[in-house]
Amino acid sequence: MKDMQKPERSKSLFRFAAPQMFYPLAGKLAPWFAGVAAILAAIGMWLGFFVAPTDAVQGEVYRVIYIHVAAAWMSMFVYLVMAFWSFVGLVMNTRLSFIMSQALAPTGAMFCFVALWTGALWGKPTWGAYWVWDARLTSQLLLLFLYLGFMALTRAIEDPRRADKAGAIIALVGAVNVPIIYFSVKWWNTLHQGASVSLNKAPSMATTMLTGMLVMALAAWAYTIAVTLWRVRSLILERERHTDWVIAELNAQEGKV
């Protein structure tokens, strides 16, 4: 009997305690990442908008890439991280992993939207149209739909346990499909409009341009981590609102105010 109960207890401790342990940790880390993000973003903007030279062909307009490229990179990367946490959650049955992937989704979708928006703004002067069915823009659009589907599904299911697992499955299915979608769209694109202007012909980059973009990408990383940690905290509070530690925590916070 005893040897049967032991693993049970440690397992339930693992499952229940993890969010409780993570909550204060996330609270401590998030402001630091937010600070780093703000500083990096300021440096990146300064490099991009004041230091980097004007492009010979595109003029000042090209400067939107300092936001556009970082956002596009981040939107794809965040989806992979989401799929990773979903996988961990399904295999290990840890709640925090599911919370992580759900906390990441809105940020990923936001970056996706920013990438599309800035892409359109860039496209108008460059291509003469806000939108062309370029392979990258199109797969970015489909990625946005995947994000929206994930968020809609996890919010439509009331039971949090079902929502977690269902969301994890669709995230994994999406992750398997993202490369397929990307390559099929690329193939479709080369077949249908080979002659159009493509993002591939980006101007050869000056070192300051590259540095600026990298700094902006790092800023996006730090921002994502900070925002996700804050979102994880509020999700933990919502999920565990009936537990003693959350009630104590909330009372303590109210006491401070």
Binding site: L142, G149, A152, A156, N177, I181, V185, W188
Partner: peptide, 20 residues
């Protein structure tokens, strides 16, 4: 509606190769 939102992006490659 949710079903449509979930699966339509996944259908795109099939559409591309099928019509293609």
């Amino acid at each position: 509606m949710l079903l449509a939102l979930l699966v339509l992006p996944l259908f795109v490659p099939v559409l591309i190769f099928g019509a293609g």
